[in-house]
Design a protein around this nucleic acid. Structure first.
Lengths: 335, 335
DNA sequence: TAATTTTGAGTTATCGGTAACACAAATAAA
DNA sequence: TTTATTTGTGTTACCGATAACTCAAAATTA
């Protein structure tokens, strides 16, 4: 590998002079500059970012930690983050926790040793607390995405889960549904709790009774063909509609319904949080509360870069993005 | 930030002794080892990977360059790559070229300066040649994914595009279709050329005439509601089926058909290459030639790591993975 | 012409680790 | 007891760049 010393030697100057040419600093005669440039090109020289970072204490790397790389919400978010990062001269070090706290911890250790300039952190859930604390302890700037973590004071970009959930459920109620099941995430995730509150509120505001037997919990990406659905279907007074708390749960629900020979929306209306990205446009079918995923990433990255570059005040900022109710063909009045 | 010297001082030893404790090298008395360990924990010391890499000439970073992060084929591939990398102690530096040669070049420059140990490279197309050559020139090991680049001799993991295309088209022919349109990628991409050959071969083997007016070209992720489709629909003898050369093209085709009030498969049968990932399970609708995306990533990563660790011979290896024809409900006999 | 300023470099030390070598004290072998 | 070996640790140099400082030659000013 060609180093700055190879260039210096071949050009008959010192390494410092080459460094000055690279960075356009100090005074260099036009003649020398040209000579050095020529040698750099001849030898295809590329400065070693490791060595630079060691001196400058800056890697221009930002870590993006998401929980499910096959979930279109996160990939669209990643695109927003990447675009914003690139614009500001940062690169993304990408990590995928699979909603798994242990994997998340592994990545936090890696992040710390790599000395990234900052982290865009979509936490698995409340127990991410320790991992985030670890970042704080080492003074790595970070922005939390999508899920709020109790006990962590940091910049955060959230969707309005409660309001989005209320809109979805009220849409079902307006269609005439009275027995609405909630297939929710696990209770260690703030969005799951808030979506439950929205579900709750919609019932209360519309004078509908709540029934705990209509609520079940699953990991956001763990709804494989599941007997828990049978529990709902075999109730004395089974639901006529299901609210899935995110897109992947909806996929699982709909698959399970299909395996049982039930039609959506004929036999069961289904709504969910989060849309399905560009690929989902092939068959826009589900009524959803769509979150602005791209903006999540873009805004989060902007906040983070401001933090990194010291442009923001000490107080942590909290951005809440609205979701949009998109009514499609997975809902109809109960039969 | 705590350094190895802080630890050394507080433990009353030299930096080298601390280094030996960290790496379990050399001889250290049990007593010293314990003392150093204790100090490291007290100060939450984490070794600086930059400094280590500078000495060891190893970053344990692998760059994964894909062309479309919102395409489920690539995200599933990324998951396979990530799992394999993690198993071997490497991390992924993630990059997304958006099928854009200029963006790809930018990332190659970044890759070179970051001194990653290797690159998993899904090229945008034939003109990626120069970018790959750049990697070769700097002796960065890489494995090419999905698309073969003329003039580049390297390990490569491919899908069997020709065979997959032939299967899809023969499925349509078996249903009775005689006028089959091909919405293909651009000609600078090997898979587009091979899928055309498969399309071609299916016609030839089944005694069907080819008609160039049935073939159109678009970038693999650039089929937005498009008047080119009108060209096909307004032919004197319009197609009764469309073969889209990848999943995102199929999305565009189906959206366009819908906007024009045409039903799939009622008015038009549609098939495509590539499946739609976990999220696509919500409504398995399209008949596809599904490629084993996870294996693409996993296998590619294995080949790459063997290269990096010098376990493989000089000859470059070429792995071809079969695709699987999955017949679903987007196809039926012509009306 | 002498003194001062500007220009265009070079030297040295440092970022945070590790490889290679050195070396005193403890232990074992002759 | 003397010599050889082992053990545990320290010193020095270096990875590839840059910040801070130095300095001779050229240009400018008095």
């Amino acid at each position: 590998m060609i180093t700055i010393y190879d260039i210096a030697e071949k050009a008959g100057v010192s390494a410092m002079t080459v460094s000055r040419v690279i960075n356009n600093t100090g005074r260099i005669s036009e003649e020398t500059r040209k000579r050095v440039r020529k040698v750099m090109e001849e030898l295809h020289y590329i400065p070693n970012a490791l060595a630079r970072s060691l001196v400058s204490q800056k890697t221009h790397l930002i870590s993006l930690l998401i929980t499910d790389i096959t979930n279109p919400f996160y990939t669209t978010l990643a695109r927003g983050a990447e675009d914003a990062a690139k614009k500001a001269g940062y690169r993304l070090l990408f990590a995928n926790s699979d909603e798994d706290y242990a994997k998340e911890k592994d990545y936090v250790d890696m992040i710390l040793s790599t000395r990234v300039d900052g982290v865009l952190f979509a936490p698995a859930g409340d127990h991410s607390h320790d991992n985030l604390l670890q970042l704080q302890k080492h003074q790595i700037p970070f922005v939390v995405l999508d899920r709020e973590i109790p006990g962590i004071d940091a910049d955060v970009v959230l969707g309005d889960s409660k309001e989005g959930a209320r809109n979805l459920v009220e849409h079902l109620i307006a269609l005439g549904h009275q027995r609405i099941a909630l297939v929710n995430g696990t209770q260690d995730v703030s969005t799951a709790r808030l979506r439950y509150l929205g579900y709750n509120e919609a019932h209360r505001l519309n004078g509908l009774a709540l029934d705990d037997s209509l609520v079940i919990h699953r990991g956001y990406r763990d709804f494989h063909d599941d007997s828990a659905l049978d529990g709902l279907l075999q109730l004395d007074d089974p639901p006529t509609a299901i609210f899935a708390a995110n897109n992947m749960l909806a996929v699982g629900v709909i698959q399970s319904l299909r395996h049982r020979g039930l039609q959506v929306p004929g036999d069961m209306s289904v709504v969910c949080f989060d849309d399905f990205g560009p690929a989902g446009a092939i068959n826009p079918f589900l009524t959803v509360a769509a979150q602005p995923a791209y903006q999540f990433g873009q805004l989060g990255m902007q906040l983070l870069i401001e933090r990194i570059e010291g442009e923001s005040s000490d107080a942590s900022r909290r951005v809440m993005l609205p979701s949009e109710l998109i009514v499609r063909s997975s809902t109809q009045p109960p039969s």
